[in-house]
Amino acid sequence: MTNEDAVLGCLLGQAVGDAMGLPMEGLSRRRGPRLYPRHDRMQFFFGYGMGSDDTDHACMTALALPPRYDERPDYANAFRRDLAWRLRWWFLGVPVGIGKATLKACVKLWLGFPSTKSGVFSAGNGPAMRATVLGAWAENDEELKVLVRASTRITHTDPKAEYGALAVALAANVAATTRDGPAPSAEVLTARLDELLPHDTAADELRGLLRQVVEGIAEGLTVEAFAEKLGLTRGVSGYIYHTVPVALFAFFRHADDYRTAIPAVIRCGGDTDTVAAITGGLIGTRVGKPGIPAEWLASYRDWPWSVGRIERIVKKEMLDFTPGPQMFPFYKFWLPFQIVLLLLMCVAMLLAYPVLVLLRVTTRLLRNFLFFLVVLGHIVRRMLPPY
Rank of each mutant, 00 (worst) to 15 (best):
residue 214 V to G: 08
residue 230 L to P: 06
residue 236 V to K: 05
residue 260 T to S: 14
residue 257 D to H: 13
residue 264 A to V: 08
residue 218 A to S: 14
residue 250 A to N: 10
residue 229 K to L: 12
residue 261 A to L: 05
residue 256 D to W: 03
residue 220 G to Y: 02
residue 224 E to V: 13
residue 231 G to W: 11
residue 218 A to G: 08
residue 236 V to T: 11
residue 252 F to E: 02
residue 230 L to T: 01
residue 270 G to H: 08
residue 250 A to H: 11
residue 224 E to H: 10
residue 240 I to D: 02
residue 223 V to H: 00
residue 259 R to D: 12
residue 264 A to I: 09
residue 209 L to T: 08
residue 264 A to F: 13
residue 210 L to Q: 10
residue 222 T to W: 06
residue 213 V to Q: 10
residue 258 Y to Q: 08
residue 252 F to V: 04
residue 245 P to M: 09
residue 221 L to D: 13
residue 213 V to P: 01
residue 255 A to V: 06
residue 252 F to P: 04
residue 250 A to P: 12
residue 233 T to G: 02
residue 221 L to M: 14
residue 243 T to H: 08
residue 259 R to C: 01
residue 212 Q to S: 10
residue 227 A to M: 03
residue 217 I to W: 01
residue 224 E to T: 13
residue 240 I to N: 06
residue 235 G to H: 11
residue 266 I to V: 15
residue 243 T to R: 08
residue 225 A to T: 05
residue 226 F to I: 04
residue 246 V to T: 03
residue 253 R to I: 01
residue 247 A to H: 10
residue 232 L to T: 07
residue 252 F to Y: 14
residue 228 E to R: 14
residue 225 A to I: 00
residue 237 S to N: 12
residue 217 I to F: 07
residue 233 T to Y: 00
residue 238 G to N: 05
residue 270 G to S: 07
residue 252 F to G: 04
residue 251 F to E: 07
residue 241 Y to T: 02
residue 233 T to F: 04
residue 251 F to Y: 15
residue 239 Y to V: 03
residue 244 V to D: 01
residue 233 T to Q: 09
residue 231 G to D: 06
residue 262 I to Q: 09
residue 228 E to P: 00
residue 243 T to V: 13
